[in-house]
Amino acid sequence: MLGSELQTVEQVRALRDARRTDGTNVFVIVRAILSAMRMTAMNLFRKPVTVHYPEKPRTYPDRYRGLLALVYEKDTEEEACIGCRLCEMVCPPAVIKVEMLKGEKRNYAKTFTLELYACEFCELCVQVCPTDAIVMMKSFDLATADRRELLLDKDRLHAIGLQHEQSWATGNKLRDMQGPPKMARTEHAAKEETPA
């Protein structure tokens, strides 16, 4: 039954002609045309929205997910990464590869490779890191002509961490924001972050 009620070409044409307005009111037409042209003319005198990048740098918001980097601990100036490989396991496109080096007091990462050309910039690695070792920067300027330069090893990652400005998000901050609160959430947020 349903198959016979579908539209035939005659019905298409009939519907089309029934829906068309005459459009013969000249004044309406002229006014509409002039109104559209006035809109374009108004924009002629508005300031253009172009930002003259790269001469004028763009201000990135606090939470910008840019390049990835490994950081050092604030007080001891040691590498923060303990080679636990949680980031390697959570990464959806599996771009991180870590080898652990066992030490006496704490572990280290022997090698840490991150394939930035395949990275999704989803920030999941930042979220799971127990020591806030891997973070994202407020910059993405790493365009290169050779893809091998985007295969970041540990030294490169540390260097990026020292060169650029760090984003707001670290593992502990994200986990505290998400989980049920230890203290009232609004006070916590006001203490931790700067306005975006």
């Binding site: 374009t40 003319a41 924009n43 002629l44 508005r46 253009p48 929205v49 172009t50």
Partner: peptide, 10 residues
């Protein structure tokens, strides 16, 4: 240039 200015760009 004229068209660009009408489109909020240079």
């Amino acid at each position: 240039k004229f068209a660009a200015r009408m489109q909020s760009r240079i």
